[in-house]
């Protein structure tokens, strides 16, 4: 796979910080005193149901929408203060269009012209995102996936230190999504700050290091994705459920039968696999299964965003609030 030109990063990278960003559209408070940080060298998932204010937040960060209050900073400066901004920030926003009569290559060449980026780099990127074959065709005939790829190529034109992608997986086939994940990881490992928005946790669960979850314009949760999992839970299964319950209690652990995990299943919270295994052995109980239970993140995410607003957490038609 071709790799974008040398990613020589200044030590430390370029962080993104959102400070008290607020946007009111008439009566609607689209974004409400939102504050979070995006660290360099990591992939941050920016999550929230449709209409939660993700796109508005990104647009304020990029100087496209004037905030009602607060500020968004990139490497400590507002976007509008950046000279040759595409060398610092690459962004592919949802609802970014292409002139249907202009070819994908010409679309990129027009953007490249603003930064004096040579056509060679344009062709390199078309190759990278897998659009080389369709580069000279009119963009009006592109599929959704091809548009996403063209948007990504545009974001990468200036070889930026910060990449902001709004729902980049929309319209990509599974192979494309897999490729994108690998590519973003590669960039983050090179020191790039990557922020990927999505309304689905499952889309970023495998890639993101950190998550920022918002609902109804407000911050719900932010931090490393592992922390979402909360305290570890152990699942243990035995053909002797009563003896197992006794053994767990004797060891001073909190346990409860978990019939939804199958017959004879038992969950123990806040304990390691070893502690539970030792407790079973001490009680002389036969164990048929012993494993750590992952939190159902999707359910957790739904709960987090729903608590905030039961209406908005329902499945919504596509498209953000104004």
């Amino acid at each position: 796979m071709p790799v974008p030109s040398e990613n020589q990063r200044a030590a430390g990278g370029t962080a993104v910080s959102v400070r008290g960003l607020t946007k009111r559209f008439g009566e609607v408070l689209a974004v409400d005193s939102l504050t979070f940080e995006v660290a360099p060298g990591r992939i941050t998932g920016f999550l929230g149901p449709n209409g939660a204010g993700k796109t508005t937040t990104l647009r304020m960060l990029l100087g496209l929408i004037r905030p009602t209050a607060g500020e968004g900073l990139i490497g400590g400066r507002p976007y509008a203060a950046l000279r040759q901004p595409l060398h610092t920030v690459g962004a592919a926003l949802e609802a970014t269009g292409f002139h249907p009569g202009r070819s994908g290559r010409d679309h990129l060449r027009v953007i490249a012209a603003t930064h004096g980026v040579p056509d060679r780099r344009v062709d390199e990127l078309l190759e990278l995102v897998g659009l080389a074959g369709a580069a000279r065709r009119r963009a009006g005939g592109y599929s959704m996936g091809m548009r996403q790829r063209l948007g990504l190529a545009a974001a990468l034109l200036g070889d930026p230190q910060v990449l902001l992608l709004d729902e980049p997986a929309n319209g990509l086939d599974p192979e494309g999504i897999r490729w994108l994940r690998g590519f973003l990881r590669h960039l983050a490992d090179g020191g790039t700050t990557v922020l990927v928005s999505s309304h689905l946790l499952s889309e970023v669960e495998q890639t993101a290091d950190d998550v920022v979850i918002i609902a109804r314009g407000q911050l719900v949760r932010q931090g490393p994705i592992e922390e979402l999992h909360g305290p570890p839970t152990v699942l243990v299964r035995s053909p002797q459920p009563e003896e197992l319950a006794r053994a767990v209690r004797t060891a001073g652990l909190e346990g409860a039968p978990a019939p939804d995990q199958g017959p004879g299943a038992f969950t123990v919270e806040g304990a390691s696999l070893a502690t539970v295994g030792d407790a079973a052995r001490a009680g002389g109980v036969t164990v048929h299964e012993l494993r750590a239970l992952r939190t159902d993140l999707e359910r957790l995410y739904f709960r987090l965003t729903q608590q905030q607003d039961p209406v908005l957490a329902q499945p919504q038609p596509d498209g953000e609030a104004p």
Partner: peptide, 18 residues
């Protein structure tokens, strides 16, 4: 009009925020 109609204004103003 085209920039607004085809929503290329975003791309344009990202390249030059002034």
């Amino acid at each position: 009009g085209q920039e607004l109609r085809h929503r290329t204004a975003t791309t344009t103003f990202l390249a030059e925020p002034r």
